[in-house]
């Protein structure tokens, strides 16, 4: 079927609910309304309020209760309406969801997939556009996934639902309806912990994910360079091998993400390359990210989020060295 990311995720959730009667969806407006982005559209009608449950407006409540459900043998798939509101549940995620397994040496664990929209570009109010993946990855014990296309979104979400741990599934709102792709109708997995290779090339490596994948693809095609484009897909645990292999092959690395530059995922990736492939590089690594400041109001977001021009400038710079 041809599907955009919303349809692909909706289809994945439908298959997960069909496959696993312990799986339930819960969150704000996920029921009759089908979610504010319509990601859960139709699932309430198909499965009823026992499987697709509207909750009070309480992010810590949604995640804390989901942890308890998971401990009790269920498989909750909570939705937090926007990542900007998920800080109310930060405590539950980084003090509990990621710790129960180690706290009990594996006797209790928390199989749960937390879905939340991230990143900007859709002209919203404050707190609807953040890219907080580094915060959650730094906590340790949380698997953090960001899809960049409908096919991966469906396969990664199904793979996340088959894991026995908490997975944060961060959905870039900008990509929800940006394009359609051929997506198989049945169940399939895209492996978690494995980066995707968007294109292969010789001149340079561009390591990116989420909203920046289409931006990087356009920049590369405009400059007509031969580039490895790596879509990280799983932020934590990161697929170091794929990244290092590419860095060693091309000797030139640009890392592009929408999240602010400082202390970000790009810092982690460049540190790993510096530690393990430094002498195989022939120019310094370049990081491209948003400025190191909180996400701005809509009229300034185009000046803030990295665009093709910023990526092209980085390509020109690294190829001139």
């Amino acid at each position: 079927m041809m599907a955009n990311m919303v349809t692909a995720i909706n289809n994945a959730l439908d298959l997960i609910l069909q496959e696993d009667d312990k799986a339930i969806i819960l969150g704000e407006d996920v029921g009759k309304d089908g979610g504010v982005f319509r990601v859960t559209d139709g699932l309430f009608d198909k499965y009823g309020d026992r499987r697709v449950m509207d909750t009070p407006l309480s992010e810590s409540g949604i995640i804390g209760t989901s942890i308890g459900m998971a401990l009790g043998g269920m498989h909750p798939i909570p939705e937090v309406q926007f990542a900007g509101f998920m800080y109310l549940a930060f405590d539950q995620l980084v003090n509990h969801a990621n710790r129960y397994r180690s706290r009990t040496r594996g006797t209790w664990n928390v199989p749960m997939v937390v879905r939340t929209p991230i990143s900007g570009g859709v002209r919203t109010l404050e707190h609807h556009s953040e890219s907080p993946e580094a915060l959650y990855s730094h906590a340790g014990g949380l698997t953090v996934v960001i899809p960049s296309n409908p096919y991966d979104a469906k396969g990664l979400l199904i793979a996340a639902s088959h894991m026995n741990d908490t997975v944060l599934f961060l959905e870039p709102t900008k990509l929800y309806r940006l394009f359609k792709q051929d997506v198989p109708e049945g169940i399939y997995e895209v492996p978690i912990g494995k980066a995707g290779i968007v294109s292969e090339g010789e001149d340079l490596s561009i390591i990116t994910y989420g909203t920046m994948v289409p931006v990087v693809k356009n920049a590369v095609s405009k400059r007509k360079v031969s580039a490895d484009i790596i879509d990280v897909r799983t932020i934590n645990p990161i697929d170091e091998k794929t990244i290092l292999d590419s860095a060693k092959k091309t000797g030139k690395v640009i890392i592009v993400h929408e999240a602010p530059l400082s202390f970000g995922v790009g810092a982690e990736i460049s540190a790993r390359i510096a530690e393990k492939a430094m002498f195989e590089l022939d120019s310094p690594i370049i990081r491209v990210g948003s400025p190191s400041l909180p996400y701005p109001f809509p009229q300034y977001e185009d000046y803030y989020v990295p665009n093709e021009g910023k990526v092209i400038a980085a390509i020109d710079k690294i190829l001139s060295e």
Binding site: S60, G61, I63, G64, T65, S66, I67, G68, M69, A70, L71, G72, G73, M74, P76, D91, Q92, N95, H96
Partner: peptide, 12 residues
């Protein structure tokens, strides 16, 4: 924080 785990566990 544990009270919410108890509520979810009870619901399960």
């Amino acid at each position: 924080t544990q009270l919410l785990h108890a509520v979810g566990l009870a619901y399960s």
